[in-house]
């Protein structure tokens, strides 16, 4: 049995040192997709061109994550690279070609 049964106890445990430290059933405590940096997976990066963008929101609708950021008026403000996996759907659906996919190596 895991000694670590609830998320509050998990906070200061850090990396498990014995089997009892591992969360029961491999459950992730306190976790939600909000905290997971899926941007680490990205090999190509969407680059948003503010000049061309008409905020039609097609990219926002089609993004499989939550990577298109908007302001309070519903206008596109950019791309959240913490979440963006680089799938390229936004660039593909953009009617104004305002998003360009570029290799991550260009930004290294």
């Amino acid at each position: 049995m895991s000694d670590c049964k609830n998320w509050k106890e998990m906070k200061d445990v850090g990396k498990p040192k014995k089997w009892q430290d591992v969360p029961m059933g491999g459950i992730a405590y306190g976790a939600s997709a909000e905290n997971v940096e899926t941007g680490q997976w990205r090999s190509i990066r969407p680059v948003w061109n503010e000049e061309e963008c008409i905020s039609c929101m097609l990219c926002w609708v089609q993004c499989p994550d939550r990577s298109i950021t908007t302001d309070e008026n519903g206008k596109v403000t950019g791309i959240d690279y913490f979440y963006c996996k680089g799938c390229g759907i936004c660039a593909h659906v953009c009617p104004k070609k305002a998003i360009e996919m570029r290799p991550e190596a260009d930004f290294a």
Binding site: W7, G25, S32
Partner: peptide, 19 residues
């Protein structure tokens, strides 16, 4: 909040079975 069904590779699979 909890997430069920997370990945556990060679580092922790065994420990979860031990539980």
């Amino acid at each position: 909040p909890v997430s069920y069904g997370s990945f556990a590779m060679s580092e922790y699979y065994f420990e979860i079975k031990r539980q």
